[in-house]
Design a binder for these strands. Structure first.
Lengths: 213, 213
DNA sequence: CCATGTGAAGGTATTCACAGCC
DNA sequence: GGCTGTGAATACCTTCACATGG
């Protein structure tokens, strides 16, 4: 293996592989070939091998990959071994669902704090996390939390992010349907759910619809 | 303008442009330049012009784009003018949040039906939509609904999708963290929220973490 | 003999620079 | 002068084919 910059598209796929490895590990497997993993996650085998080749030699020719070792390697590459604590801002319908969502655990991620501006919500506990006053986001600085999830209405998103950045947050998963302006050192991934649904019709077969022409 | 296949990446960006156009329209603007739109949505101006050039001549040199006309053109390209009704399967925390989510309206999309397997939920009404028995998904065939949103646990996702496909659904937005097997004519977009959060640390500056090395 | 890792080829998307039109 | 639309250049990613190693 030689030095390579890891392509963004590879980084996008790594969590998929991790998910597939967990499933195989649960089934008691110790090793897995790129082909088997490919079948279970829906990515081509050569793509998996190429992706993994960017950051380490994990496989054994003739045998495959040691699941435990490969999972550790991927986690390290994604820096999931060091960063594990996240804060949620905005405990509305979507925010509450995220607090209850068990899926983060698979990647070793935990939501350990939550903020909201609504006085009726402050002080309540949802899924073991107490909702704090959004005006106190500054207190995050002392709490070793560098990941934030933003689930507030569009109008509030930018100001919340400004405060999060001031409080030392380094990465943001944004559910508000808008662009967020942040310093270059901060990474924002925006996930606009309605937008994903909106691009689905483009790929659907062009049959005449009964409603409207 | 000449014939071009529209790149997938362009299709991914079109809803962003649509969102930006709505905002400008709300502000009373009639025309907008690629540069202004670029500033408001966070995509480069030449990228926008290139994307739009794949499917129509919308702009006027020296003036810019007519917002109303461009929005209609994008909607038509994405086929949002014909497909508007969606069904939700799985009314848990996330599903309920999606039912309440106002963002789909912006794209002319409506969730008009909901299914769940839990007898305690069946018959209840959430946000004006009555929850029906998941065993009755087959009744969709008569209801002119071709889009589905799947928000059930991983273990139930594949069988729900099988039923949806049998009932005539053509496109699926899947929130379950797994690959779904469907006939080639069906389009599935999987949106794994935990996975998005998991790739965030990779892009964050490599400072020493206080917790664990 | 089987499965990995990787150069090389091929394809797709981004970026540039500018001709053409209002 | 200002702004669009687009060929050409560049960068990036995917796919292939096979040498290499257990």
């Amino acid at each position: 293996m030689r030095y390579h910059k890891i392509p963004d598209e590879t980084v996008r796929r790594l969590p998929i592989y991790l998910r597939g490895l967990m499933v195989s590990a649960d089934q008691g497997c110790e090793h897995i070939s790129s082909q088997s993993l490919a079948d279970s996650v829906g990515v081509d085998a050569w793509q998996i091998r190429k992706d993994l080749s960017y950051f380490g030699d994990f496989g054994t020719p003739g045998v495959g990959y040691n699941i435990e070792k490969l999972a550790r390697g991927i986690k390290k590459t994604l820096r999931l071994d060091a960063i594990r604590r996240a804060v949620l801002v905005g405990v509305g319908d979507l925010g509450s669902a995220l607090l209850a969502y068990p899926g983060f655990r698979m990647y070793g991620l935990d939501i350990v704090a939550a903020f909201d501006a609504d006085p009726k919500k402050i002080g309540k506990t949802v899924n073991g996390v107490e909702i704090e006053d959004a005006a106190k986001i500054g207190t995050l600085r002392q709490r070793d939390i560098s990941l934030a999830i933003v689930a507030v209405p569009r109008a509030a998103a930018q100001s919340m992010v400004d405060e999060l950045v001031a409080a030392g947050v380094k990465g943001v998963l944004n559910f508000a349907p808008c662009k967020l302006v942040v310093p270059k050192r901060i990474k924002v991934i925006t996930l606009d759910i309605a937008m994903e649904l909106a691009r689905l019709p483009y790929y659907m077969p062009r049959v005449e619809q009964m409603s409207e022409t």
